[in-house]
């Protein structure tokens, strides 16, 4: 799976240093954890990809989501935006082996307010979940220009 950014966005991405913030934290068995990431004042983000990983306390890698048993990790994100950009609620990602331990290119998704991510663990043990984002930061007005017309 790959994504080709529109040319204006690609130019902007090349000018900016892409950042890869990473979050690692435990998700107890049978729990969902929701976290929120907010850009600095006057700035916004464009997300172009993610990387997911999960390990048990003994360091072993978790298996991909199993639809037969309903066991695994499930990820969902909301990209909240100021008007006129629309807030985008993403589809649910069941983290099968196709999604774990590799870069997932997708989007681009703008965030001008906050990114909210929920990870649900239906495995029987605590999972130390790792979520890396591929993102570049831009002034709010520049994001509004780049994504003009996608709001309504």
């Amino acid at each position: 799976m790959s994504v080709i950014l529109p040319i204006e966005l690609l130019k902007e991405a090349f000018k900016q240093a892409q950042q890869m913030p990473q979050l690692v934290g435990p998700v107890p068995p049978g729990y969902s954890v929701t976290g929120r990431l907010e850009p600095p004042s006057g700035m916004g983000w464009v997300f172009t990809g993610f990387m997911f990983g999960g390990h048990l306390a003994d360091g072993s890698s978790i298996p991909g989501y199993n639809f037969a048993t309903g066991k695994g990790l499930v990820w969902k994100a909301t990209y909240a935006n100021v008007q006129p950009l629309r807030t985008f609620v993403d589809r649910t990602f069941y983290l099968t082996s196709d999604y774990l331990y590799q870069q997932i290119f997708y989007g681009p998704r703008p965030v001008t307010k906050f990114l909210e991510v929920t990870i649900t663990n239906t495995l029987d043990q605590t999972v130390y979940f790792s979520n890396t984002a591929f993102v570049f930061e831009l002034p709010l007005d520049r994001i509004m220009e780049l994504f003009a017309g996608e709001g309504r």
């Binding site: 913030p21 976290g35 929120r36």
Partner: peptide
């Protein structure tokens, strides 16, 4: 990069 906070654990 930004500010992270936990919204809820359910």
């Amino acid at each position: 990069v930004g500010t992270f906070s936990i919204v809820r654990v359910e």
